[in-house]
Nucleic acid binder design. Structure first.
Lengths: 187, 187
DNA sequence: GTCTATAGCATGATAGAC
DNA sequence: GTCTATCATGCTATAGAC
């Protein structure tokens, strides 16, 4: 995943920010061009179509997520692995809030042209959670479902944090999530 | 919330289904009209604008959610309350999957014209979770954040269920979620 | 209350100069 | 590789007949 720079980078950055606010369909190529400080023609020179632009954007975002989770887990297992992964997601959400919102909004859209590649990478990210859960419960058939649930909790929690109570620290939020995942909710 | 019927109902139904697939901006008033079996003019007769149409749609959806959670909790507390609310959300997601997807996609959009009323109802729904959590932990300042996290877990889990493993029963999914919320994940 | 027809505008995409 | 100018399309919304 060679790091993108220059004009391509400005365009991608402008695109996430706008799309996290107005949605992909609500973001025009003209908007993107203006925000990136280039002409519309240049956007089309760098990305052959609007679909291609956002496909690359989402694939990069979810790819980074998968990679980050893999690193965060490392060789850990159990609660330490979980905590490390929760922290990693929260850091990612905090450092790229627009991307987090975009992913949250697009991950369940099933009819987009870029859905198949996106779901592939999504599965890759979830696999890290599945590994941790299955290490503790080798016989449960619902590890994948629970992985999705945990991921949803952290993602929504993270966005919730930044949108509605950005004054809290990452540590506080991480503690809250782990507190919940530790069965203390109604104890 | 007087039950809407007739043409208005057909239009609303068509609108959720289309918007859950293509997003709100990706859904045209013409599409809605065709799917509802009426003319575009009739759509505008019943809803003054596209914004108003989707505002009502989302408010109804989240309103139903809040009401359902209130009923599900009743006078229960602790784990029984939680389980009852989890089941209620899953039932709602299952019975109205398009609405669930739409809510998941729109709930974090911060610049929509209908955002303020929507966030109000959202808070109302979360308040039910907050009540349960605060009953067990009166002194925790992060009850609201955890409520958001739990809600995110159930919502994402529910959609995940219907999109990727619709063969499972509601009971199975509910068990998975409660299993996770009970701290068994890495035990 | 529902229809058809159309105004008026914004958008995705391309062509061609520099 | 980036620009300006433009085309063709499709969109929201309205007017007016029935």
């Amino acid at each position: 995943m060679a790091r993108v720079t220059g004009t391509k980078r400005s365009i991608l950055d402008a695109a996430v920010e706008l799309a996290s606010l107005n949605g992909i369909t609500g973001t025009t190529m003209e908007d993107v061009a203006v925000r990136a400080g280039v002409a519309k023609g240049s956007v089309y020179y760098n990305f052959s179509s609007k679909d291609k632009l956002f496909e690359q954007l989402l694939l990069d975002g979810v790819g980074t997520l998968a990679e980050t989770l893999r690193e965060a887990r490392g060789t850990k297992t159990g609660t330490p692995a979980l905590r490390s992964m929760v922290d990693a997601i929260l850091e990612l959400v905090a450092s790229n809030q627009p991307m987090a919102k975009l992913i949250a909004a697009e991950i369940f859209r099933t009819d987009r042209s870029w859905q198949s590649p996106l779901q592939l990478v999504r599965r890759e990210a979830l696999a890290e959670f599945v590994a941790v859960i299955q290490h503790a419960h080798p016989d449960r058939p619902d590890a994948e479902l629970m992985a999705g649930t945990v991921f949803g909790a952290v993602l929504v929690g993270g966005i919730e944090w930044l949108v509605f109570s950005p004054d809290r620290s990452l540590q506080e939020v991480s503690d809250s999530v782990m507190f919940m995942l530790s069965g203390n909710l109604t104890a």
